[in-house]
């Protein structure tokens, strides 16, 4: 059954072929800057993805719990408040503790260059900042979703 149909807009071909990319967007810290995450939500939807945004102020453990319940392909974390090193880390730490390896984590927001390698090391990729074209972000998410799907049934 795998890889039978060609990849449709936003749809992942390898597994769960009938399910478009499913993505959870979250701002896990105390951060009310939601203009960017609304833009991303709409852009992802328009790129054919299924988008979950649980509103402001979810706790890191809530984010992971939602991701598991929804079996998303990607978690997109956004913070503009400068707390990414602490708060993004909380999310990936909880994932590690629960043994979750097949959900990709991407990040973005107000992230100084020097923090990017640190986030990458935690497994959080992208880490795009102000002015990044949506097309770049969507491509990145698609790539990471593909990787996650491969792991889901490994």
């Amino acid at each position: 059954m795998l890889g039978e149909r060609s990849s449709v807009n936003g749809k992942n071909q390898s597994l769960f072929k009938d399910r478009p990319i499913k993505i959870l967007l979250a701002k896990p810290g105390i951060d009310g800057h939601d203009r960017g995450i609304f833009v991303l939500s709409k852009a992802f939807r328009d790129a054919g993805m299924e988008v979950i945004y649980p509103g402001l102020l979810p706790k890191p453990e809530d984010v992971v719990e939602i991701a598991v319940n929804e079996d998303v392909d990607v978690i997109a974390l956004s913070l503009l408040n400068g707390a990414h090193l602490t708060v993004f880390k909380k999310v990936v730490d909880i994932m590690k503790k629960r043994g979750i390896k097949d959900i990709a984590v991407v990040g973005g927001g107000t992230i100084p260059d020097e923090d990017k390698p640190k986030l990458e090391k935690m497994g959080i990729t992208g880490n795009y900042g102000p002015g990044t074209p949506l097309s770049v972000i969507i491509e990145h998410v698609k790539k990471r979703a593909e990787e996650a799907r491969k792991l889901k049934m490994a």
Partner: peptide, 22 residues
């Protein structure tokens, strides 16, 4: 800063990493 804006003390669990940042 963010904790203050949302009525949390610097000692709140959620304030971790956010104190004085914004």
């Amino acid at each position: 800063d963010m904790p203050t804006l949302y009525g949390y003390d610097c000692t709140n669990e959620r304030a971790e990493g956010e104190v004085g940042k914004c």
